[in-house]
Amino acid sequence: MSSRGERIPEILAGFLTVLVLLVLYAPVLVSALFSVVTIQRGTILWETFSLSSYATLWSNSSVLQALANTAIVAIASAAAALLFGIALAFYTRSENAIGRRSIEVLIYLPFLLPPIVTGLSLLVTTSALGVGRGLFTVIIGHTIFVLAVAYRLVSTRLAALPPSLLEASADLGASRWQTLRYVLLPHLASSIVTGAILALTLSFDETLISTFVAGDQMTLPLRLWAMMRVGFTPEINALVTLVLITSIALALLAAWRLKPSWSEADSSD
């Protein structure tokens, strides 16, 4: 029923949305397209379609090594961050916690500060202490970075636990360890899984901290960076596409698990 004049803002908003999506995703699509076909002077040569660049990538041992390193770093830092996150959440949510707010600020800060600060300070510290840089230092850097996410998820879930559940467990004769095993960890399970996925996602494409502390080791983003300095090959596009697909898949998984309805579902299935 609306008149032409009233619809102008709607049309404008729709146009802008399309424009933003185009600017955001066109380069991504082009990059993905480049990995399978050749494009010359703006013309897509469909007859050149081949997956050979992926095959080359697969036979490139330095890329495979970087992929393995990334996996090691992501899993190790996610596991470490969750372990520390759970321990810290138990402390800050306990009745007698001293300085809960300041501890939380300290946990969240590295996530909000420019990663360059974390990377640089870690670099300075390791060289001052004479610690060799490598995967271990990358893992430390990533752990500091993703700890905020792991802590946040676990502590929020922990806060949702009715204190009477812990009292009931003790009342029925359970020791602290039994309560941890049978009541606390099952309650936290959903947040631990979500925290792990988010931590893996963040660690997977983290570049800046890695740049400072990786030493002569390569993670996937660092490998990509190094390859681009040498020359722009279809392999790079293939790698970018793979990194993209993995990141998007992990992010979607995390987003799906973070849906508020999920916490309702876990108690009834």
Binding site: P162, L165, A168, S169, D171, L172, G173, Y182, P186, H187
Partner: peptide, 30 residues
Amino acid sequence: NRRPFNTVFQDYALFPHMTVRDNVGYGPLV
């Protein structure tokens, strides 16, 4: 956990991730 008393809580405090049977069997288990 070492007193020979048991409590029925106002909000029942049932363990949501356990079946009725596991809830009732929790005391003997621990």
